[in-house]
């Protein structure tokens, strides 16, 4: 999930609010010019911008391997994937802008550390196998969350998600294909794949956010049609989908409690280390500082470029005015 722990505004009780809720309950999409409660607007801004920031920061861990991809084909695929993520960031920022916030404001919130992005991107990519594991697990988990968001009550977000989902499922298949090739390769390659699964499994499960009983924001978001499923439902679905894939690859999921439960028709599995999750969210993950520093450096180093283009546009304007 690319948006975690999104703080949710409270619903009011006016006539307008009741009409709004009735509209959502009838399944009518809310569009940019429609009236909406402030809480709904703010929640969506927080969620969509957090999602966009995740795409932007998400370029970094995979971008880390573009120059070292081991074949021309893999290099092209990885580059295309990271480019897609930048594109997702772009249309998500546009979707958020329809709610009355500018891209510059959102960027400033990211760079100052005020805005959050998905905790998963604060983990390092250490070997080529991580390009497989990230695509397979991280994009896999993201899809679990994003498929229902295609039905989100807010039109621009839901439409952005339809496009994003098409590309994400392609990424997930590519990641799986990297893993497949490694698992069918040499002993060293297989060990590399297992090591990547070991390191990415738990952080991937944490992407869905804390257990529903500890999630304070879910209920209102679900009533507003911003969120469709609980964190635990999505996590269960992810585990049920992914474990057979790991078995097919010949890899071992690093969870001693993992066991098929015939009665519920799904897997029982262990609890992620939530203290680690909250540490990462607080800024103490392995890469938080590096990620934010990289984004700040890109922005600061690029100031002359943005100012230069603005100066040129200004000159053009004056020239036209003078003529």
């Amino acid at each position: 999930m690319y948006a975690q722990l999104v703080e949710t505004g409270a619903a009011e009780t006016s006539e307008k609010d009741r009409e709004f809720q009735a509209k959502i309950d009838r399944g009518v999409r809310i569009e940019a010019n429609d009236w909406m409660p402030e809480g709904y607007r703010k929640t969506l801004i927080r969620q969509i911008s957090q999602h966009a920031h995740s795409e932007i920061v998400g370029q970094l861990p995979e971008g880390n391997w573009i120059t070292r991809a081991p074949s021309l084909q893999r290099k092209a695929i990885l580059l295309a994937k990271v480019q897609d993520e930048a594109g997702h960031g772009l249309y998500l920022y546009c979707a958020a802008e329809t709610l009355g916030i500018s891209r510059d404001e959102m960027t400033a919130q990211l760079l100052s550390g005020k805005a959050k992005y998905s905790s998963i991107f604060n983990y390092p990519t250490l070997t080529w196998a991580d390009m497989g594991a990230v695509g397979w697990l991280v994009d896999g988990a993201a899809i679990m969350n994003q498929v229902p968001l295609q039905r989100c009550s807010y039109g621009p977000y839901s439409r952005a998600m339809i496009r994003v989902c098409k590309e994400e499922s392609f990424h997930q298949r590519q990641g799986f294909d990297v893993m497949r090739q490694l698992c069918q390769g040499t002993e060293e390659q297989k060990a590399m794949a297992q090591d990547a699964l070991n390191r990415w499994w738990w952080p991937s499960l944490m992407m869905f956010g804390p257990s529903d009983k500890d999630s304070v924001h879910s209920e209102q978001s679900m009533r507003w049609g911003i969120k469709q499923n609980t964190n635990d439902e999505l996590r269960q679905k992810f585990v049920d989908q992914t474990v057979p894939q790991a078995e097919w690859l010949g890899l071992t999921v690093p969870d001693p409690e993992l066991k098929w439960n015939e009665d519920k028709g799904g897997y029982d599995f262990g609890e992620p280390d939530w203290s680690e999750f909250f540490e990462v969210i607080k800024g103490n993950g392995p890469c938080n500082k590096d990620r934010l520093a990289a984004r700040n450096k890109a922005w600061d180093d690029g100031a002359w470029y943005r100012d230069g283009l603005t100066a040129h546009a200004e000159k053009q304007k004056q020239q036209i005015a003078a003529e």
Partner: peptide, 28 residues
């Protein structure tokens, strides 16, 4: 391609990745 994620604006991240892709395709 090394600029992907590090360019001055998002549009340049995308453009540089795009040119990189074309060039790698031509290389092949």
């Amino acid at each position: 391609a090394a600029w992907c994620g590090h360019a001055p604006v998002l549009e340049e991240d995308i453009a540089f990745a795009n040119m990189g892709l074309d060039l790698i395709g031509q290389t092949q």
